[in-house]
Amino acid sequence: MRNPLDPAELDAAIENVHRAGMPGLFAEVRDGDQIWRGAAGVADTATGRPVTADMRHRVGSITKTFTAAAVLQQVESGLIGLDTPIGHYLSGLVPGERGDAITVRMLINHTSGLAEYLPYAYPSLKAFPRLADTGPQSLDDNRFTRFHSTDLIERGVGAPATGAPGSTPGIYSNTNYLLLGELLEHVTGTTAQQCITRTVIERAGLRNTELPTGPYVDGPHSQIYESWLGMIDPPRDYSVYDMSFVGPAASLISTVTDLNRFYGMLLAGEIVSMSSLAQMQRTVPVVSQEGKTIEYGLGLYPTEAPGQATFWGHGGTAWGAGALTMTRADGNRQMSVALNLQRWNTLDPSGNPQPHPIDAALAALCRVAMYG
């Protein structure tokens, strides 16, 4: 049974997240031909400028679905083999036995066993993702640092493996998606940014979505604030930031409307074929950066509630920015939400994040948006 949109209920739910402590957030929910867009709070805590639902936003690892779709398109064209070892294409980046054992599929679904490079790019992330043992200094030091993906890949590949290639649970690692960016460049002769823009973003008709080449967000956007688990107090603005440290893994800028359009088209077989979509929806257990085991496909993961339909999508974070997008399997119900504060939970004496009112309010918004 389909749940119609209730604008008053959605308005109240998004306002509750703001009242719980989120400076600003905005969202779009679709049910068939019905569309609700809402926003609550401020885009700039200094001026009080309000957020609006059409703002462009850093959406973090939602980028991975776009990158995975671009790779699947090249699989369909015959330029990439989904179960071909990555060493066949990029032997210089993943040499030897691992290059022969790690397949393209293992990179996309995080079962490669390749370690996360971020602790080596950001010294203060030495215990990533255990942020309790870190400090925020590297965020300021690297605002305008231009990283080269091959250097970052080398650090991830050179780190101790997190498991044997193909073993589960896999370990979520951005190293995998930087390698996929290099793979796209290798087989298409263009940069990953150009390939994903042409074959995915433009194909989907997304007018406010881009993989940035500089540190700024063009067009109307919110400032974004990083709390770093209470270690940055008050939270600091990181809306100007060079995202080359994550590239095709997590640098995308988009809007909630564009995200809903993209995922709706993806699940309808309009970005990749239905057979490729079926591959994307084959999941394996993967340990997320938060230490939780999730079911992860090829750049997609499902969300399910008891007695409710399955939704597919992805979440993402950047320094200060967060987003979540979910589309019901039949494509008729969609939700995308963007947040301008990250890591708002403080730590208890043992270093574990403490519950925050934002957690419950945000979960309630997502329930209302997805299930009515």
Results as ranks from 00 to 15, higher is better:
residue 93 L to D: 06
residue 93 L to I: 14
residue 94 V to Q: 00
residue 94 V to C: 10
residue 95 P to Q: 05
residue 95 P to E: 12
residue 95 P to L: 11
residue 97 E to W: 13
residue 98 R to W: 10
residue 100 D to Q: 15
residue 100 D to N: 15
residue 101 A to C: 12
residue 101 A to V: 03
residue 101 A to S: 14
residue 102 I to R: 05
residue 102 I to A: 03
residue 102 I to Y: 01
residue 104 V to Y: 00
residue 104 V to E: 01
residue 105 R to E: 02
residue 105 R to W: 02
residue 105 R to K: 03
residue 106 M to H: 02
residue 106 M to I: 05
residue 107 L to A: 01
residue 107 L to T: 00
residue 108 I to S: 00
residue 108 I to N: 00
residue 108 I to V: 11
residue 109 N to H: 10
residue 109 N to E: 04
residue 110 H to Y: 04
residue 110 H to L: 03
residue 110 H to E: 10
residue 111 T to M: 11
residue 112 S to M: 04
residue 112 S to N: 01
residue 113 G to V: 03
residue 115 A to Q: 07
residue 116 E to N: 07
residue 116 E to K: 02
residue 116 E to M: 08
residue 117 Y to T: 07
residue 117 Y to C: 08
residue 118 L to P: 10
residue 118 L to A: 12
residue 120 Y to A: 06
residue 121 A to L: 07
residue 121 A to Y: 05
residue 121 A to M: 05
residue 122 Y to P: 09
residue 122 Y to W: 10
residue 125 L to Q: 05
residue 125 L to Y: 15
residue 125 L to C: 11
residue 126 K to E: 15
residue 129 P to H: 03
residue 129 P to Y: 02
residue 130 R to D: 15
residue 130 R to Y: 15
residue 131 L to W: 10
residue 131 L to A: 12
residue 132 A to E: 13
residue 132 A to M: 06
residue 132 A to N: 14
residue 134 T to A: 15
residue 135 G to K: 12
residue 135 G to Q: 07
residue 135 G to I: 04
